[in-house]
Amino acid sequence: MRIVRTGPLTVLKDGGRPGHAHLGVPVSGAVDRTAYARANALAGNPPGTAVLECTLGGLRVSFSEPAVAVLTGTDAVLVVDGVPAGVEEVVAIPAGVAVAVSMPKRGLRSYLAVRGGFDVPPVLGSRSTDRIAGVGPARPAVGDVLPVGDVLPIGPPAGLPAALVSSPVAEDGPLELDLGPRDDWFTAAAIAALLNAEFVVTPASDSVGLRLDGPELTRARTGELPSEGVVRGSVQVPPDGKPIIFQADHPVTGGYPVIAVLTPASADRAAQARPGARLRFTIAPA
């Protein structure tokens, strides 16, 4: 597959590289894990196959041989030789024609899966580009050629697992979270604000973290917190009181208290929040 145009941001992603945190290497991987898994399931690929993660569309490519591809994550569609496909439609693509990813009206990140996956060399067991650590394949550039892997004889699935069936764009409503592990560092008013106020995604957000604007989450304790391990979906609060939701390319450790952690499904939903989006939070059901 040849890259003709990259759009605002296109990177290679897969399931990530777990097991290296003790070396200071983050997991990384797809920012919206559910949309990524659904793309591979629809394309007939094994779990963990490398795809392209496209932010706000704009990607344009061509294939030297016939291919099968699908786009998930947003309401963007594949436009094959000028003809738009349906949302999340699995498309047979002739060799040599132009294939474009449209600009989504809702959502932020689309996942382009090609049957066979992208067979670039893995780094520490993963083909994910980690933007904070600089580990993994280079960001695709115009003129680059990405090899497509061998197609395994599994074919497209007759039906998706229930866990992968959802709307092309995540539903509205509060993001679910669990308080802790450092909620005791914050005042009761801060906890109430987190669970009742509205927060706005700022333009400084990226695959490392969603930076939010809203009421200041005030601390009940002063002093410094030693750096400790953090996970995707952690809601870290720096001294200015403005929360940051860690996304897929988050660092291994964080030195500010984590007031709460999003559920995995809500972390996927947060991955589709554009700058200017308004977010609310609620306690996850037991």
Rank of each mutant, 00 (worst) to 15 (best):
D172T: 05
T202Y: 01
H250P: 02
D172P: 01
V235D: 10
R131Q: 13
L146Q: 04
A197D: 15
A220W: 04
A193P: 02
R232D: 06
A192W: 00
P243Q: 12
A286Y: 06
I132E: 07
G276K: 02
I154E: 09
A265K: 05
P168R: 10
A67P: 02
A170L: 01
A170E: 06
F281H: 00
E176R: 15
G29R: 00
A92T: 15
V123N: 02
V61H: 06
G173R: 10
P153Y: 13
A138H: 11
A190Q: 04
T202N: 02
V235F: 05
G136C: 07
L71E: 11
V135K: 00
A220Y: 04
I93T: 05
V120A: 08
R5D: 07
L194V: 06
A158T: 14
L164P: 01
P243N: 12
A43R: 03
T74H: 04
P181M: 12
E65G: 03
P285W: 01
L9G: 03
R38K: 15
L23H: 07
V148A: 06
L71Q: 07
D75C: 12
T263H: 09
Q236F: 08
R131N: 06
G229F: 08
I93G: 00
V261P: 00
H22G: 14
R280V: 01
G209L: 08
A41M: 03
L279A: 03
E198D: 14
V77K: 01
L59D: 02
G180Y: 12
G149K: 10
P239R: 13
V235R: 05
P157I: 04
G209Y: 13
R139D: 03
G96M: 12
E216A: 15
P226H: 13
A273S: 15
A286M: 06
K242Y: 03
L179W: 08
H250E: 02
T282F: 02
E216D: 11
V252S: 11
V123L: 04
V27G: 01
A192Y: 00
G254S: 12
P26H: 11
P157M: 06
M103T: 15
G173M: 09
A113T: 05
G44A: 12
G82I: 07
T222C: 04
R115S: 03
L160H: 12
I93S: 05
G107H: 04
V68P: 01
R182A: 11
V237N: 09
R38V: 04
T202I: 03
Y36T: 04
L217S: 11
A30P: 04
A284R: 09
K13W: 00
I259N: 07
E89R: 11
E53G: 05
V83E: 13
D32N: 07
V25D: 04
S227E: 13
G223D: 10
S227C: 12
V90I: 13
E89D: 14
A248K: 00
P104C: 12
R106T: 10
G159I: 08
P215V: 11
L56Q: 14
A100Q: 14
A76W: 12
